[in-house]
Amino acid sequence: MKQFASVFTCAGALALSVALVGCSTVQPWQKGNLAKSEMSFDHDPLQTRFEEHTYFSKEGASGGMSVGGGGCGCN
């Protein structure tokens, strides 16, 4: 539990620093590049699903992108 707590503290500090760096305001009309599909974190939903599913069934680690994904008997 101690390790969980320290990891969460570090990640929380990191999240806060990202938020603070982001205080430089980007105006709506400056978001043309950010609006490009390739700049999205989910630019290809089915590709993400295939790859997450593959790694989920072949590795010990998983998670971090969404919740309520459900399981499978994948071997």
């Binding site: 990202v18 982001g22 400056q30 978001k31 590049n33």
Partner: peptide, 9 residues
Amino acid sequence: QVLSKNDTA
């Protein structure tokens, strides 16, 4: 977070 007109994290 949008960090700049070319960065998002």
